[in-house]
């Protein structure tokens, strides 16, 4: 096969070639000259060595993603040797993690949307079907109970999946939207979220229901009388999402197993370490993700769920009617 044409031990090769190669590389790191001198270009007069710039995203994909996506219109080099941040230097900056993060500075370089990071779960659509637990090769996914808003009753009147959840009852759990509900949704950026997801609701026990006024004992303390219209039914449900991170190997099989679009791997690579094995148990608040991340898919899932619920209730109603008919007969 092809030997290198100069692979012979001789004086020429003793110092001249390797030392020139090394010096060339060092000279290339000089900011302005290094990239512009043709003398320092690629080996045997090749193309520009560092930072051959191309567009990050091709045209039709850019159209699909829309102009707001951080990748659109950004310059990208094969060796990640350039960025738009300080373009005149043409070399990447050292990201001083953990003070700085690549996804904060140059999100277009932090490409992988399908990165297998920490597990994230949208509680609202989890049905505790346990498929993720079965898919996990290491057995690191566990079920746990958490308070969550009954999503099938959270929407406005007239929506197609309205009103098929549980109802507000005395002695049950209720939730109230926080004042900054919209703001939380807006601020929530999954990529940058390195701590527990913010809670959008206040939870409390319904002590007394008196017409349109409900007396609620909030979890944070205090008893209030609030109008019933502000409240939504909540329940303490079994959800997936207690992860033993010491065992998780981030293979993503659980994500693929989930049929409800509620289980997925976030982009977060941080905050998954601890000083003891106990620290590595990530409880439900840590794995929670706000539904706003996948709002469309969550909505689609809810439509499906509402349809099932409706069918179930109709069937039950028909059964009851039949039973009553029979009883009458």
């Amino acid at each position: 096969m092809a030997y290198h044409p100069h692979a012979t031990p001789n004086f020429r090769n003793m110092i001249v070639r390797p030392m020139w190669m090394a010096l060339k590389t060092a000279l290339r790191t000089i900011p302005y000259i290094g990239s512009r001198s043709r003398f320092l270009a690629g080996h045997k007069g090749g193309e520009k060595y560092h930072a051959q710039q191309v567009e990050m995203i091709d045209e039709w994909t850019a159209e699909r993603l829309g102009p707001d996506h951080p990748s659109v219109g950004k310059i990208y080099a094969g060796d990640r040797e350039t960025s738009d941040l300080v373009p005149y230097l043409e070399r990447p900056l050292t990201v001083m993690y953990p003070y700085e993060r690549l996804e904060e500075l140059e999100p277009w370089l932090f490409v992988p949307g399908n990165y297998n990071g920490r597990i994230g779960i949208i509680w609202e659509t989890c049905t505790a079907c346990k498929l993720c637990i079965r898919a996990c090769p290491n057995g690191c996914v566990h079920m746990t109970t958490e308070k969550r808003v009954n999503v099938l009753d959270t929407t406005d009147e007239g929506d197609e999946w309205h009103g098929y959840g549980s109802e507000i009852e005395e002695g049950g759990l209720v939730a109230r939207k926080k004042e900054e509900f919209e703001q939380i949704e807006e601020d929530y950026n999954l990529v940058l979220e390195h701590n527990d997801a913010p809670q959008q609701y206040d939870f409390g026990d319904l002590i007394k229901l008196d017409g349109d006024v409900a007396t609620v004992r909030w979890e944070t303390g205090g008893v209030d009388e609030v109008p019933l219209a502000d409240l939504q039914p909540a329940e303490e449900d079994i959800v997936s999402g207690r992860i033993d991170n010491g065992r998780c190997m981030f293979c993503g099989l659980c994500m693929e197993a989930c049929p409800f679009e509620s289980f997925f791997m976030t982009n977060e690579y941080d905050g998954m370490s601890g000083y003891s094995r106990q620290d590595l148990w990530m409880d439900a608040p840590r794995t929670r993700v706000l539904p706003v991340v996948h709002q469309e898919r969550v909505d689609a899932e809810l439509v499906k769920r509402a349809k099932q619920e409706r069918g179930k209730r109709e069937k039950r109603a028909a059964k009851a009617a039949k039973a009553s008919e029979q009883a009458e007969a």
Partner: peptide, 21 residues
């Protein structure tokens, strides 16, 4: 520093930058 530049090592080669930026 010189070794880092020959090696094309990013962290070490770029540390000088904060001098002028």
């Amino acid at each position: 520093k010189f070794f880092a530049r020959i090696m094309d090592r990013r962290g070490a080669t770029m540390a000088m930058r904060s001098l002028w930026v």
